[in-house]
Amino acid sequence: MKEALGVIELVIFPGFLFLSWLALYFEWVDRKFYAKLQYRYGPLHTGPKGFLQPFADFVKLLAKEDIVPAAVDRFLFTLTPIMMLALSFYALFYIPIVPIVRDVAFGAFEGDLILVIFVLTIIGFLKFLAGWGSTNRFSAVGAVRTAFQLLGYEIPLAVALLTAAMGAGTLNISLIAQKISTDAILASALLPALAISVICFQAELERIPFDIPEAEQEIVAGWLTEFSGRRLALFRFATDVELTLAAALMAALFLGGPYGPAIPVIPVQVSYFLWFMFKTTVLVLVLANIRTLFARLRIDQMVHFSWRYLIVAAVAEAVFIQALLAMGVIA
């Protein structure tokens, strides 16, 4: 029985199938809200309110011709899209989404936060490899920019995420989430860290104002330039999964993830689902709103900004949490 539930948890809910649906749903939310803020409709005709449009785009790209230019590194060209998708999914299994068997995430163990941070870095690095292996001028410029950007957001992101672990006194994401959901003081003390990680994830996901590595007007599609067909479909899907990862991770670390005050009448698993969807959707809306507000920065301005302000803010927040711990305000 336990094994059967485990398989369901891995494959169906909240496994691959649900996560894939979630990724496409978040892309839809993102596009729809972004369009709404710009007086547009966004996806409209495929499915109700264009809900199936991200899926239709994915299927369409799968059917398109997959061109492999003669000069590319074929190994990297094939490996990177698969690895990126696989790693994004992999990291999601350590994040409490809707725990149905035990009260924690599928792969939860003490220290999984470190693993997820590591995977986030590897994803950034894969983007660099994908661009570098394309041997295209625009791809190369985009790849170098990705690497530069990684230098910029990597440290503040890790510090901000670890601040939550410091506050909760554990490195297990699920336990952090449980602790945050019951401790309002800790949750409010961590809000600056949430703001920092929202900015850093905007950079990780390469969205305005940090869409520098794939700046369309400057370097065509940056590190993605040479990809087409199936590979591009995988990359785009991986980006959606990454968005899900970002939203779910931030929801877990700073907002308590699926855990929250019990809603009367309905079973606890359903309340997990509702809390999770609510928190992550709000985070995706915030990410989409940031996208509408700014012009794209230049790469040196981005690195400058993150070393001068973001890192300082992240470290200050960590010191602040430590001080609260020392004073015994939070336990």
Binding site: K36, L37, Q38, Y39, R40, Y41, L44, T292, L293
Partner: peptide, 17 residues
């Protein structure tokens, strides 16, 4: 542009279908 965006959130899109 945040105040402008608040207007967009409540008004109908200008796009004609």
């Amino acid at each position: 542009m945040e105040s402008e965006l608040a207007g967009a959130a409540v008004r109908k899109p200008v796009t004609l279908k």
